[in-house]
Amino acid sequence: MIHSLFLLLIFPGFIFLSIFGTYAEFVDRKLYARLQNRMGPPWFQPLADFIKLLAKEDVVPECAVPGIFRIMPIFALAATTTAFCYVPVWSTHSLYPFSGDVIVVLYLLTIPTITFFLGGWYSTSLFARIGSVRGITQLFAYEVPLFMSILAAALLANTWSLTDITLFYSRHPSYTFFNIIGFAVSILALIGKLEKTPFDIPEAETEIVAGSFTEYSGRLFAFFRLTIDIEMVVGAALLSAVFLPFGLTLGPIVGFILFIIKVLFIVGLLALIRTIVARLRIDQMINFCWKFMAPLALLQIIINLILKGVL
């Protein structure tokens, strides 16, 4: 009982995820700044932002629905933290594996977008509503390629359990190279999920103030920011478990260091893409997802089906 609570709340659960999430945000912002030839924020910056937001006043708008407005940040945080229980960290074994947990992880990672939508919609601000609707529109575009590319990898491993997928790929590391298209597609889809440039259309601050978070302030906004940080780490951990399953059998310490390196590598890739690309319009984004990413993910499924027949 105490052991499970330790696993869930401290390591590798909530506390570890929060610290690692804020650190990943720092790496993201620092890399972004260095690529623009700036100094960038100091290492404690995300922590200072979080503490400052916790100490600020919570404003709930008069027209907002207070219950939903207040509960949504907690809901988002809970969903992302839960998703981490089923992602392998330092070995091929996740905390509580069961068959079919890859689907559960993918759906748990969808919940934050839904909560951003509900929170924005019930804050009854016009900007928040436009941002929320854009977020949901975007969800339908990137979610399908992400599901298809991750499930294509699962197809080759012949299982729906994330633990077994990782086990399969660490036994046959050469099969990973066939999944490279799926990896590229899911990196792009992860950018859409995290609402970062070029897919930051839902919170485009030059157009619609701050999107769904326009009316959020203080503690509630701090939890939303923490959710996005944790979502970044969990998403990167999911991709590294499925597409980069190297060195997971070398013992917990080496595996853990490799896990940190892999996650920061994916965060660095996201920062690189964020630096070199500008924001797209919503219709361009949807077109790109359905015209290029979905067919590429389908191609990945076909490749894996053929591979399964050959091998």
């Binding site: 700036r38 100094m39 924020p41």
Partner: peptide
């Protein structure tokens, strides 16, 4: 702008008054 780089002091330009200090 990047020349003065205020983000090194933690300054961010926000769009909404709810987030700003």
């Amino acid at each position: 702008t990047p020349r003065y780089d205020l983000e090194r002091f933690g300054v961010l330009l926000k769009g909404t008054p709810r987030h700003a200090d």
